[in-house]
C-alpha cells in the first residue's frame, strides 16, 4: 500500500516538475511575444508591471481569472466547458516525452515522435469542439479552417520528421539526440535543411500562428474558434496555443538542432571553453531560439489567403519533402550510415 502511495506521489511530483516550468515558460513566452512585437515595431512594450514588465504575465492571468465566465445561451454547455480543457491538456501532455538533458525525461518511450504526433492531433479536437459548441458562425468557420489547415500540414510535417527518423533509425527522442552528438556540423539541420524549413513552416501552421492564423483571422472572423470564450476559457486556449508553440520549438531543437548537444563539441578551443556549461542550457537556448523564430516570423509576414495556404501546403511543402526523402535515402545508402 505504502509502495503504491509512494509511486503515485512520485508520479505527481514528476508531473509537477514538468508542469510548473512549462507554465512559467509559457507565461514568459507571452511576455516575450509582446516585447519582440514591440521591438520590431519600434516600441518599448509592456514595462509597467514589475521590473521592465516582468510581472506582466501574472497580472494578465489575474485579470483573466477575475473576469466573468460568460457562456452564450445557445451554446452546448458541456462541450463548451470541455473544449479549452482538452486543448490545454493535450498541449501539456506532449511535454512528457521531451528529454531536456540525458536522462531528464518523464517518459522515455520508444515511439516518442508518434506519441507527440498523436497528442498534438488530439489538440485539434479542442479547437473543433470549441467551434461547434459555441454555436456561433464565426467560431464554426474558425474551427473548420483550423481543421483543414491542421490536416493538410500534418502530412508535410510527418514527412519532414520521417527524414529525421530515417537518418537516426529511431523514434525515441533521446536516441535521435544522441545520434547528433559531436558538434554543430553533426546536427541534422545540415543534411535535412529543406526538411527543417518545411518543419518550421508546418509548425507555424499547426499552432495556428501567423502567417497561417486563418483560424483566428481577426479581420474576417473576429477570433475564430475562441470568439465566444472569455475569462478562464480564453486563457486556457491562449495557454495551450503558447504551450504548443513551445512544444514545436522544443521538438525542432531536439530533431534538427541536436537537443542538448553542445554546438562546440570537438572544436579545439571553444569546446574546451564551453565544457562547463550544463547540457540543459544548450537545449533551452536552442528551444528559445526556435521560439523566437516563431515570434519573429509572426511579426514580419502578413496573413496568407486561404487558397494560398492550401496551395503552399499541398503543392510546395509536400513535394519538397517527397523529393528530399529519396535523396536522404540515397545519402544513407551511399554513406552507409
Amino acid at each position: 500500500m505504502l509502495d503504491v502511495m509512494f509511486h503515485i506521489a512520485f508520479l505527481v511530483l514528476q508531473a509537477l516538475l514538468i508542469l510548473v516550468p512549462v507554465l512559467i515558460c509559457v507565461a514568459y513566452y507571452t511576455l516575450a511575444e509582446r516585447k519582440v512585437a514591440a521591438y520590431i515595431q519600434g516600441r518599448v512594450g509592456a514595462n509597467r508591471v514589475g521590473w521592465r514588465g516582468l510581472l506582466q504575465p501574472f497580472a494578465d492571468a489575474l485579470k483573466f481569472i477575475n473576469k466573468e465566465y460568460i457562456k452564450p445561451a445557445e451554446a452546448n454547455s458541456g462541450l463548451f466547458y470541455l473544449a479549452p480543457i482538452i486543448s490545454v491538456t493535450t498541449a501539456i501532455a506532449g511535454w512528457a516525452v521531451i528529454p531536456v538533458a540525458p536522462g531528464w525525461v518523464a517518459a522515455d518511450i520508444h515511439a516518442g515522435i508518434l506519441y507527440i504526433f498523436a497528442v498534438t492531433s488530439l489538440g485539434a479536437y479542442g479547437i473543433i469542439i470549441a467551434g461547434w459548441a459555441s454555436n456561433s458562425k464565426y467560431a464554426m468557420f474558425g474551427a473548420m479552417r483550423a481543421m483543414a489547415q491542421i490536416i493538410s500540414y500534418e502530412i508535410a510535417m510527418g514527412f519532414a520528421l520521417v527524414g529525421v527518423i530515417m537518418l537516426s533509425g529511431s523514434m525515441n527522442f533521446s536516441d535521435i539526440v544522441n545520434a547528433q552528438a559531436g558538434g554543430i556540423w553533426h546536427w541534422y539541420l545540415w543534411p535535412l535543411l529543406p526538411l527543417f524549413v518545411v518543419y518550421v513552416i508546418c509548425g507555424l501552421a499547426e499552432t495556428n500562428r501567423l502567417p497561417f492564423d486563418l483560424a483566428e483571422g481577426e479581420a474576417e472572423i473576429v477570433a475564430g474558434y475562441m470568439v465566444e470564450y472569455g475569462s478562464i476559457g480564453f486563457m486556457l486556449f491562449f495557454l495551450s496555443e503558447y504551450a504548443n508553440m513551445l512544444l514545436i520549438s522544443a521538438i525542432g531543437s531536439l530533431l534538427f538542432l541536436g537537443g542538448w548537444q553542445s554546438p562546440f563539441d570537438h572544436i579545439v578551443f571553444l569546446g574546451y571553453l564551453t565544457q562547463w556549461v550544463p547540457l540543459v542550457i544548450w537545449f533551452i537556448l536552442k528551444t528559445f531560439f526556435m521560439a523566437f523564430l516563431i515570434i519573429w516570423v509572426r511579426w514580419t509576414f502578413p496573413r496568407y489567403r486561404y487558397d494560398q495556404l492550401m496551395m503552399m501546403g499541398w503543392k510546395t511543402l509536400i513535394p519538397t519533402t517527397l523529393v528530399w526523402l529519396p535523396l536522404v535515402g540515397l545519402y544513407i545508402k551511399v554513406a552507409g550510415l
Binding site: V36, A38, Y39, I40, Q41, G42, R43, V44
Partner: peptide
C-alpha cells in the same frame, strides 16, 4: 528594425 531606437 528590432535594433532601431525606440519611438515610444
Amino acid at each position: 528594425t528590432m535594433f532601431q531606437k525606440k519611438k515610444t
